[in-house]
């Protein structure tokens, strides 16, 4: 039996008194692309933010790389974070520094590599996301799609085994979205990454998902493969794939 790379057990998340996630149990397996789906406000982003402790969960446990992380001290958890990349919905690039400097941050902070090697890695990563020409530009000079690609370059700067992407295709045209998906598949294959994606772009899900997790009103309605989801018989899940949007 495969060991999950992340195991979430009985996770409860609250904003003030409002329960966002209500006893969520999910598992993510190595070298798979897992897509977290669900309607707006169902708790998709909250789930990954709780896994990554950007919000502290109210209850439950999260095990990453075999270690329980919810009670870990900051230093210990930072060691885990060094093995994780995160692509935020809007990129979250530091606006005060160039794209080059943005990608250099994790490399400078967490490695002792010489400057010339760091520069080479940055060039390679930016070329991988087709931004080799924009290396000295600032985030404010980039389009939405370019920002996301630059943010992806930063997220994979340290070749993390685990990559989280929060709505990578949102606001992108179909071509850019498809090329981003291709890149994600390439990363999965070549860097043997485990990738967890929050999205509700059906086309994207069909292209990249190995497994899906379907959330509804803070609970897990379904987890399994795409084919299993389509014949699951769960109305909300099947409707999602039939109608193409969640209402």
């Amino acid at each position: 039996m495969r060991e999950p790379i992340i195991k979430v057990e009985n996770l409860v998340a609250k904003y003030d008194d409002k329960v966002i996630l209500d006893g969520v149990n999910v598992e993510f397996f190595p070298q798979e692309v897992t897509v977290i789906l669900g309607g707006s406000g169902c708790g998709k982003t909250t789930l990954i933010k709780n896994i990554l402790r950007l919000f502290e969960p109210a209850e439950g446990s999260v095990t990453i790389f075999g270690k329980e992380t919810t009670k870990m001290d900051e230093d210990e958890f930072n060691k885990i974070l060094e093995k994780i990349g995160m692509l935020f919905q809007n990129g979250a690039l530091l606006n005060s520094v160039s794209i080059f400097d943005n990608v250099s941050i994790p490399l400078e902070q967490h490695t002792n590599l010489p400057v010339e090697i760091i520069e080479k890695i940055i060039e390679v990563k930016l070329n991988l996301v087709n931004l080799g020409h924009a290396i000295r530009l600032f985030p404010s000079e980039l389009s939405g799609g370019m920002k996301k690609r630059a943010a992806l370059a930063r997220a994979i700067a340290l070749d993390p085994p685990l990559l989280f992407c929060d709505e990578p295709s949102a606001g992108l045209d179909p071509l850019t979205s498809a090329s981003l998906d291709e890149l994600i598949l390439k990363l999965k294959k070549q860097l043997k990454m485990t990738i967890i994606i929050v999205t509700h772009e059906l086309a994207s899900i069909h292209r990249i998902a190995d497994r899906i997790i379907f959330l509804d009103k803070g609970r897990v309605l379904f987890q399994g493969t795409l084919q299993e989801a389509k014949v699951s018989g769960i109305t909300e899940v099947t409707t999602f794939f039939e109608v193409g949007k969640f209402e």
Binding site: L54, N78, L81, A92
Partner: peptide, 21 residues
Amino acid sequence: SEIATMKVTEEIDALKMMAIN
């Protein structure tokens, strides 16, 4: 204003995710 803008644009979260205080 700089820190507040970084917070609302998730730049602070991005730093945390890079294991940077």
